[in-house]
């Protein structure tokens, strides 16, 4: 069953006086529990496409449907709710709040959802699953790059989203740490959480699911592979 569907997405930006299309007529779909990797060279439009698919950017043309409903028809509150409950995010770089502990960083989406109680237990479980329980009381600046990324993953999963959007999740990690993170992502995916991942790391894509390649803002024909 299709979870997310993009139809003819277009997004342009200005660079100096000239304009260019970072995403140029992209259509794709992500099924429930599916793992879709988006590869391509730097500047090929991967991050822009992910941002459009997750409603972080508005398109110049086309639409994105989540379970058949356009996400761009939602207002600010609707999009915020979507980002809070239905899509989890694993952004590039350091995305934790430095003045909160690891535990509080993970709990934050729960509180933004205005849910009552239980956030501590849920966050500790997630941190335990990701082997981070011992760091619950630490501050982000005390963590390594791999630990930071796993905490961000725990935060992305806090409200049990159906889809996690990750942008270069292993981009700045060493090989061992990256492999460990990939195992975790595979494990979570195997429990039915769909992943849409932009990456240079072909190892991450190998044997996981469909691989889509982007070039010049478009999907390269024939790059798509069937789901494993």
């Amino acid at each position: 069953m299709v979870l997310l569907e993009a139809k003819g997405l277009v997004k342009g930006f200005r660079r100096g006086l000239a304009g260019f299309r970072a995403v140029d007529g992209v259509s794709l779909s992500v099924g429930q529990g599916e793992f879709v990797s988006l590869t391509g060279r730097s500047g090929s439009g991967k991050t822009t496409l992910l941002s459009l698919l997750a409603g972080l950017l508005g398109p110049d043309g086309g639409d994105v449907l989540l379970r058949g409903r356009s996400i761009f028809a939602l207002g600010d509150a609707g999009l915020a709710r979507l980002r809070n409950r239905e899509i989890g995010f694993l952004p590039q770089g350091r995305s934790l709040l430095g003045n909160l502990t690891v535990l509080d960083n993970v709990r934050l989406p729960f509180h933004l959802a205005r849910r009552q109680g239980g956030s501590r237990q849920r966050a500790l479980e997630l941190l335990g699953d990701l082997s981070l329980a011992h760091l619950a009381g630490n501050r982000p600046h005390e963590l390594s790059g791999g630990e930071l990324r796993r905490v961000a993953l725990a935060r992305a999963l806090m409200n049990s989203p159906e889809l996690v959007v990750a942008d270069e999740p292993t981009g700045d990690l060493d090989l061992g740490t990256a492999a460990s993170l990939i195992r975790l992502i595979r494990d979570i995916n195997s429990r039915g959480v769909a992943f849409l991942v932009a990456t240079h790391d072909l190892d991450l894509c190998r044997g996981l699911g469909r691989v889509l390649e982007m070039s010049g803002g478009r999907l390269v024909d024939g790059a798509s592979a069937g789901r494993s």
Binding site: L56, A80, R83, N84, R85, F89, S95, L112, A113, R155
Partner: peptide, 12 residues
Amino acid sequence: GIYRLIGATRSW
């Protein structure tokens, strides 16, 4: 930006 990414509205 982080708050917004994880679901904060502008009014929040």
